[in-house]
Design a protein around this nucleic acid. Sequence first.
RNA 1: GGGCCUGUAGUCUAGUGGUUAGGACAACGCCCUUACAAGGCGUUGGCCCAGGUUCGAAUCCUGGCAGGCCCACCA
Length: 797
Amino acid sequence: MLKEKKWDKSFEEEILKDWEKDWEKLYGFSNQKKLRLDELYSIDTPPPYANAPIHIGQASAYIWKDFFVRYQRMKGKKVLFPLGIDRNGLPIEIAAEKKFGISAHEIPREKFLEYCRKILKEASDISTKDFKRLGITYNSYEKGKNAWNVYYTDDEEYRALTQASFIYLYKKNLIYEDVKISNYCPRCRTTIADAEIAYEEKPTYFNYVKFKVKETNEEITVATTRPELLGACKAILFNPEDKRYKHLEGKHAVIPLYEREIKIMAHPIAEVEKGTGLVMMCSFGDYMDILFFREQKLDPLVLINKEGKMNEHSGFLAGLKIKEAREKITKELEEKGFIEKREKTTHKTPVCERCKEDLEFIEMKEFYLKQMDFLKDLRKLQKEIRFFDEKSRNILENWIDSVSMDWAISRRRFYATEIPIWYCKKCNHTIIPEQKKDEIKYYQPWKEKPPVDKCPKCGSKEFKGEQRVFDTWFDSSISVFFLASRLAKTTDFEKIKEYLPFTLRPQGKEIIRTWLYYTLLRVFQLTGKKAFENVWVNYHILVKKGEKMSKSKGEKIEPSKIIKKFGAEAFRLWSAVEGNLHKTDFIISEKKIAAEEKFLIKLWNISKFISKFEWKEVEKFDEKNLVETDKWFLAELEKVRKKIDVSFSTYNVYRATTELRHFAWEYFASHYLEMVKKRAYNTENKFGKNDCLSAKYALHKSLQTILKMLYPVIPFITYKIYKEIYGKNICLEKFPEKIGVESKIKAGLEEVSQFNSKVWNMKKEKGVSLKEGISNIEIPENLRFMEKDLREMHNLS
RNA sequence: GGGCCUGUAGUCUAGUGGUUAGGACAACGCCCUUACAAGGCGUUGGCCCAGGUUCGAAUCCUGGCAGGCCCACCA
């Protein structure tokens, strides 16, 4: 018998304590020795950032992952549900720079890393508390070296594996160093990859700048948003079809202020309609410029240095920051009469995804990982992966189709994995560490000596360590490989391979082009295999229609506040029934979360009612003796059970939960329970003993089945009810097996509920209260088998 | 400019050719009924628009309109 009058969110705390005592037994992953691969359900979970509390969208997404794993455990799988904390890269560095008011490039490296570690120390575990409170059952919240312990992406063993993968690929000639025009962030002072570019709508000016044609002395006007690059201008183009400028072909223009002569050329990339129809080509204002310089084999004249400032080639602008230079040259041009007019405009500017600074195109020498040669393989490979939902595959396919150059993997930053290379100071020979397959090491070339005494080429003993680090996606993209290596308990790639593919990669749609794409690429390059069987892509929780949750807007709805207000369970239920997270964004509302508590109360009351009848009394009841009504209901329940099982196994928790909730509330509580109530009580002895026992047995059997099926979604309440009524831990129960009760009755649940509604409506029309009797009601032919129950229920005469 | 996705009651969402278009919130009416008034029962209300395919379209096709995302460009 349930003691408490109703479900209360305060019970959750005690329940968590119960679980915590037995965490390993309930949710752990410690019996690896007997692990069979066909029993393994492995997930490569997205590591949340160490220095940011989780937001509500993440909370929902991780809750969904918990739905999956709780279900899989019930199905007998050994579930590897690891937790990683992402601690690498720019977000940490930027946080450190901000907090301590320093610039990474201006203080000693060791010192800066200390500041980063300080940030990380304060930040640690900021999100795991919320996860645990939400009932998310990672295998462990303790940091350690076992597969099921929390891992940090800046662990030495993780970084060592990243470096080992680099060495492996370098030796396979998949990595090369080259000077190319790169996307360069002047704020972070590093090259970034195409996948790290974002675009922002920013206000700027079109400046209509007057040039003089040397040969004819006429004036021509070119519009530009980048006047500071005037000095880097190498050509002015017009469209071959443009009659206005045809006569300028082959002539020369004089750059104002710089007085340099440049060619005027006809070229199809110039469009008649845009600006004045004339466009200047500078090194390098945008991607078109790069293509043009490459095509014409022009020597670029670069005006911007690696600090994001104008260099000596820019003449009077030298030393200024780009924006200052833009202002200064505009003023200068205006004063000297070279500006015809200025127009305000906005345009989408490529910015650094991390720090939002405007990007520049600068020629840099960087390490590249070959990816162009693998696009074909990846297109094929992704077809062998199952996507939930199928439409998310498009995002990946589109990205694969738009990859246009190899991946620049080196970064000029600090708190990241170092590139494990040394150079001979004398002959510049490259030293790459040799290592055994199962004995890898973490290298820090900027402060360590190389693993050789002397240069194998020239014998010199003087070396220089590589200063650069890896793009953090180069680390992140082997998370699954790292987890597999923990399972394999070795760093031998051949053995790691056996644990791939993992069963599931759950992740957000916004990191398909990075995390998912790079992982597939990297795992394929390292093992020739696909990384995952299934990819589950979650969409977003929105504040309003079409409006993303964003910190800057001040509309943050924090998980901790939601938990405090409504409890974890109501939030879990809301996450499951508000919409199908892998199909659509959905909109959060406190009202709806609060409303989910109603079902919890309902479930509690149903259970409280059934708990009035001792389970012990009917535990041994022989199903052969079930009366027709009960057989019929259990057979209906079996139909539902089957559907729910399929929905859960295909990650459609939305469908499973809404269907289950409706069944429990509508058919089970409102109809079946009302129908058999009198028979179960049997206070006036109108029914035989077997009839009474049959009702009690069917009620308990139904309740057990429903509780178990609800457990993956709402584990707190189902745990408490199950424990109090049946004295067992629901976390260790199996998903309900087939209910083997056969019924020949054809009537469906719908027909019964229609009949009941009819009676209730008639009573209402006649102004009769529900418990009063009513006469002249005909019981339909197909419901005759439960006539006695119906008569008692409605007090029919 | 190109691509992808979405459009279902006041709101949030299921539903891929045949359903009386399902559920939740809100609204309204009635009811303390031996689990439940933090409740129960009931009621109202919906497929963006226009064509087409089909015996039949929320669902498929075409074209609009609206929103979101991605890519490219921005002189």
